[in-house]
Simulated scan of single mutants.
Amino acid sequence: MKIGILTSGGDCPGINATIRGVCKTAINNYGIEVYGIHSGFRGLLDNEIELLTDKSLSGLLNMGGTILGTSREKPFKKKGSTVDEDKVNTMLSNIEKANLECIVCIGGNGTQKTAAKLAETGVNVISIPKTIDNNVWGTDVSFGFDSAVTIATDAIDRLHSTASSHQRVMVIEVMGHKAGWIALYSGMAGGGDIILIPELEYDIHNIGNTIMNRLKRGKPYSIVVVAEGIKTENNMKAAQYIANEIEYETGFETRETVLGYIQRGGSPTAFDRNLATRMGGHATELIINKQFNRMVSLNGSDISSIPLHEVAGKLRLVPQDNDLIIQGRKMGICFG
């Protein structure tokens, strides 16, 4: 049996651990030949496919990024009003020439959508969710999220001492265009005083009042954690906008910090390494059992899978009744 594996979309910690989980299970336990497809779906268009061996998988567990490379190529994206059939036919032809009986697609929401469309053409597909934003529908957690939260929490911890020393308001912006999971989890873990996420509306006057009330209680500094996707005026960056508004509302010296791509880089946490390994191994089991066109998922503490067509086009957003939000409000944390 021959299978292909690719990684698509943005990089994140744990991709290589997932590649390792899939390939080592396939090669060592089932004698399957695994071919790495370079640069995401672009590799299927350019026929950049190479055999992976047990030796080529050494050292991947703690390595950031992806050894296969990635791209945001979307072969099914419409060109004008129609899909570019030449692209699709080229991709399908290269899969057939390589005799690949299944394609394992590792990626986020866009990748899940493309994988579902690939499955509709008759290709056997297994997908594995990958995102630091934790916004892939159908799984409780995606690998990469814990690593990003750990990095963001460490940054918030470090800002506490600076904010306290200078008696400033520090605004830290973390990733999350539509989903505020990183801001919520790192903000709570890092002791943020104000946490702003796209799913919850905020009132800048309320934020200003929260900071002033903290001053009256003898707390001359505040930490504000914001997701990059919160609404701002004139398309300003989240941290810059909130910092400017806080300074205007309160007169407090306010500084902003944008973490950016730091959240995506480096080694995965132990949790993400183990989650990636489990998800990769389960993907191989699905292939062996010919349970194709499914996405691997984490439900509670169990690894399982759901039909791929149920995932495409959906987002996993933070619900307003999330227990961290409820507990945070009870503790006096402002969510806007």
Score class of each variant (00 low, 15 high):
S142P: 05
V141K: 00
V123A: 13
G80P: 13
I126N: 08
G80E: 11
G64Q: 12
L60V: 06
S186G: 07
I103D: 01
R72L: 06
A152Q: 00
Y185I: 09
N62T: 14
W137S: 14
V125W: 04
V174M: 02
A179D: 14
N109F: 13
D86T: 08
K117C: 13
T162A: 14
L68K: 03
E73V: 08
S127W: 01
L60D: 14
D146N: 15
S142L: 03
G176A: 12
L61C: 13
Q112G: 03
K113V: 03
A179C: 11
V123I: 07
M91K: 11
V104S: 00
K117Q: 03
W137F: 13
H177Q: 15
H177A: 08
S142R: 03
N109K: 08
F76D: 02
N135H: 02
S56D: 15
Y185W: 04
L61H: 12
Q112P: 05
W181Y: 11
G110K: 04
D84K: 05
E173F: 02
H160D: 00
T66I: 01
W181A: 15
V125I: 01
N62E: 15
L118D: 10
I95Y: 00
V104C: 06
D154K: 14
S186I: 08
E73T: 09
T114H: 05
P129S: 09
F145L: 10
E50Q: 14
S147E: 04
I106V: 04
C105E: 06
I151V: 14
I151P: 11
A148S: 12
I128F: 08
K130P: 07
V136C: 09
H160P: 05
V141E: 09
D133S: 01
M63F: 15
V123D: 00
Q112T: 01
T90E: 01
Q167L: 15
I151W: 12
V171D: 10
M91T: 09
L159E: 10
P75T: 13
N124M: 05
T139Y: 05
P129G: 10
T111N: 11
F76L: 00
S142I: 09
V174K: 01
N135C: 14
K130L: 06
A163V: 07
G138H: 09
I103H: 00
K97P: 07
M175E: 04
H166I: 01
V149D: 03
A183W: 09
E173Y: 03
M91W: 03
I172S: 07
L61K: 15
E85Y: 02
T139V: 10
S165E: 04
A183S: 12
K130Q: 03
V174F: 06
S93C: 10
G144T: 09
D133C: 06
I106M: 06
T53Q: 12
N94D: 09
A116W: 04
I67M: 15
S165W: 03
S161Y: 08
T131K: 09
P75N: 10
P75L: 10
G122F: 05
D157R: 14
D154V: 08
P75I: 09
A148F: 11
D84F: 00
L92T: 11
L57N: 15
L61F: 12
L118Y: 08
V125T: 01
N89F: 08
I95W: 04
N94R: 02
G108Y: 04
V123R: 02
A155K: 06
N99M: 11
G110Y: 08
F143L: 07
Q167G: 02
R72W: 06
I182S: 04
R158P: 06
G176P: 04
N99P: 07
G180F: 09
